[in-house]
Amino acid sequence: MDTPLAVRARGITKSFGEVVALDEIDLDVAQGQIHGVAGPNGAGKTTLLGLLLGLAVADEGRLEILDSPVGRTLDAPGGVAGFVDGPGLYPSLTARKNLAALAALRGGDRRTADIDDALAQVGLTDVADDRVRGFSLGMRQRLGLAAALLTRPRLLVLDEPANGLDPAGKKHVHGVLTRLAAEGASVVLSSHRMDDLEALCSEVTIIATGRVVFTGPLGKLSAESQELDYRLITSDADTAHRIAQDTPGIKLVAEPGSPAWKDTGVLVVRTLVPALDELVVRLVRDGVAVRELAPVVSPLEAAFLALTEQPEQESDR
């Protein structure tokens, strides 16, 4: 049985004058899934998220959100919350009063306990009574997420939610999003940070110049389909170098004589996953311990660069 969809988009096109921001975009987001949207500046990510939040309407195509068709008028679909280009907040109000005011604007009167719970979830309890004008970018992002949580969304749409976050803030945000998905809510988020997408998302859609160039599980972007550079540190660098030279499919990028080798005894090899697996088997068989083995660039980032390589534009659409 197919998983129910929170978002179903077919042939979505959106233009601003002569600029085509989205060109026949298809998108499926399953219920209970964290779905990433990635792409270079100007790809159309923000435009797509704006359509999901009811901040814009498509020129052509069909869009269904939470089983309801989206029409041609500006309207936030029920059960949807989030933000694009950063959350809208009142700088002169405290974090707690911001949430109370935003809840009132939405026609609700959330209890103090609900507001305190939302602040606690994003790690802002200690600054709940501080004015927002003094908040860092990361704190504003977390407060925007807290505001969205007050609506108990079934679909959460976030534009660069990790922007400006320190490690503690990142931990809070990741925890909130993972919990929401586990409880059945769907999350669509855009990010330039490939590590966030890899840590959170089960599927990702990559957009370039307004078109989908890839969509599907992260596993489809694994290193098995392309050569990647891997950093290798072992208990015996000289023996590892010899074995690597003799393993079919392994190309040495950094080896004896290179700065990396001189300083740390690091080997950098370029290969596909099957040949890398064979190299590890041979190392272990010869009594060489593998202390570190990791891609120099993550498989998702490598795929992203390969799929979207183009001149960098100044700003996102």
Rank of each mutant, 00 (worst) to 15 (best):
R8P: 01
A9H: 05
I12Y: 13
T13I: 08
I25A: 07
H35R: 01
G39Q: 03
A43W: 05
K45V: 09
T46H: 01
L48G: 01
L53Q: 01
V57C: 15
E60V: 12
R62W: 14
L66V: 02
S68H: 08
T73K: 15
P77F: 05
P91D: 13
A95V: 03
K97A: 05
L99S: 04
L99E: 03
A100S: 09
L102S: 04
A104H: 13
A113W: 06
I115C: 02
L124F: 04
D126R: 15
G138F: 13
M139D: 08
Q141Y: 03
R142F: 13
G144C: 08
L145N: 01
A146N: 05
R152E: 14
D159W: 02
D159S: 05
A162V: 07
G164R: 00
L165I: 06
D166C: 15
P167H: 06
V173M: 15
L180C: 03
A185W: 04
V187C: 09
V188R: 10
H192F: 07
D196L: 12
L197C: 07
T205D: 00
T205N: 00
A208K: 12
G210D: 05
G216Q: 00
K220I: 00
K220C: 00
S222Q: 03
S222M: 10
A223P: 09
A223Q: 11
Q226C: 11
L232E: 06
H241S: 12
D246Y: 00
I250T: 00
E255L: 14
S258C: 06
S258H: 07
V268R: 14
V273T: 15
A275M: 01
A275I: 00
L283P: 15
D286T: 06
D286E: 15
V290D: 01
A294C: 11
P295I: 11
L300N: 08
A306W: 01
E309V: 04
P311E: 12
E312P: 04
Q313E: 14
